[in-house]
Nucleic acid binder design. Sequence first.
DNA 1: CCACTATATCGAAGGTTGTCAATATTGAGG
DNA 2: CCTCAATATTGACAACCTTCGATATAGTGG
Lengths: 122, 122
Amino acid sequence: MLQVTDVAADAAACCTPLTREAIDADRAEDLARKLKALADPTRLRLVSIVAASEGEEACVCDLIEPVGLSQPTVSHHLRILMEAGFLSRSKRGTWAYYKLVPGALGQLSQLLDVTASRPVVE
Amino acid sequence: MLQVTDVAADAAACCTPLTREAIDADRAEDLARKLKALADPTRLRLVSIVAASEGEEACVCDLIEPVGLSQPTVSHHLRILMEAGFLSRSKRGTWAYYKLVPGALGQLSQLLDVTASRPVVE
DNA sequence: CCACTATATCGAAGGTTGTCAATATTGAGG
DNA sequence: CCTCAATATTGACAACCTTCGATATAGTGG
């Protein structure tokens, strides 16, 4: 079970922020899985570098040197980011290009947003 | 080193989202520490319950039963959330009340926001 | 002061994670 | 085909995390 059906999962986890009403165990599990994928300094840097690259896309070979870790380790982190739905991969020739998945970060951001959750007070 | 100087740390980590330009190792470390605190289903539920409570505040005794874990474990998670700056604690009598730290979640949310980061394209 | 209650801390067990070196895989070009 | 380059996978190890039971601490009320 490497590649989850991200579309369905995303749809379920979408739209109701943390702070309006207590989330149930299933949604907590789901959100935690995504946060965990992002909760590592190396992976944050990888996402950041990819996001700041031309076309929000970067080759593995361009990512190894900036983060200063071995190639297998970088591949490992990229895989985790892909499985969590933050990056997608496309191979061109021998090179693998990782690209930001458009809505992924923004959706997570919305879930954490407190202002969006407070209806109007009461 | 339990309670970090959150105000200073928050100020440093504030305002420049992930996706505009590659973040440096220090900021990645800092952001990862906060995300890690949130990247656990139990802690997400705790934050969520506290956030949804009267005055965004709840007593430990009211948190144990909903998450279904032992009291020491719940205390442990609350400590982690406090050290990361998401909750604050105030003791009243024998009871300990944990409260949402106002801007904390929103700030994290902004850091992940992609739309805020794209200047206007180029 | 003593018992009781609420919470925190400690110590340990089991599982998960980040990292690397070694190896496998895949694609390009002679 | 054979070799080389880029990437992925495997296996191993140390560090860390979550959880618990046991125990310590602190506040309340007799």
